[in-house]
Computed example of a mutant assay.
Amino acid sequence: MLANRFGPEFAQEYTNAHEGVDTNAASAEAMDLHNNAVRRRIAAEHPDASPEELATFVKEAVLRGDMVVVGPDGMLTPSDQVALGETGRAEGPPATGGTKPPPTDTEFTSGGYNPGSDGESYGTYDS
């Protein structure tokens, strides 16, 4: 929904910004960055989808194995290969090497902000 309302560039910078914190295990960071990218792709493929439709598309991606999870062994595993409730814990040292995106002077544009106040239109583009 973030990508559809504010644009993919803003969504990427916003969702990736907190992943590089020094308490986030490298495997958790990698999982989140990958899954964020999949969700942004889903939003781009369905710019006029409602929140409920987006949730369905994300669930389908999980069931298809497009997402990754931390498996019982602590390793990243396609989401369709780990049973519900059987995920492991991301442990280990945090990632190093500059995972935080550099600050930019980019002016984010989404094609038209829609705060959703009308209750019907969830996309960012005028119909």
Rank of each mutant, 00 (worst) to 15 (best):
H34I: 03
L2I: 13
G92L: 03
T23R: 10
R64E: 15
E29R: 13
G98M: 13
A26N: 05
V70T: 05
L2G: 01
A55I: 12
N4F: 01
M67R: 15
N16Y: 08
R5H: 08
A28L: 09
P115S: 05
P78H: 08
S79W: 11
G88A: 14
G92P: 01
G71L: 03
S127H: 02
A43I: 00
A90W: 00
T87W: 05
T15I: 01
G71E: 14
D80N: 13
P51D: 10
A44D: 11
S117V: 05
T23H: 07
P101D: 13
G92N: 05
H18L: 08
E91A: 04
V82I: 10
S127Y: 00
N114C: 15
S79V: 07
E107Q: 14
S110H: 04
L84K: 03
G116Q: 03
Q81E: 07
A28Y: 00
T96K: 09
S117G: 14
T87C: 10
F57W: 12
P94S: 15
R39F: 08
G74F: 02
P102V: 08
L2P: 01
E9F: 15
M67K: 10
A61P: 04
R5V: 04
E52G: 10
P115N: 11
I42L: 09
S117C: 15
R89I: 02
K59Q: 13
D105V: 02
Y122V: 03
A49Q: 07
E19I: 00
E45N: 12
S110D: 12
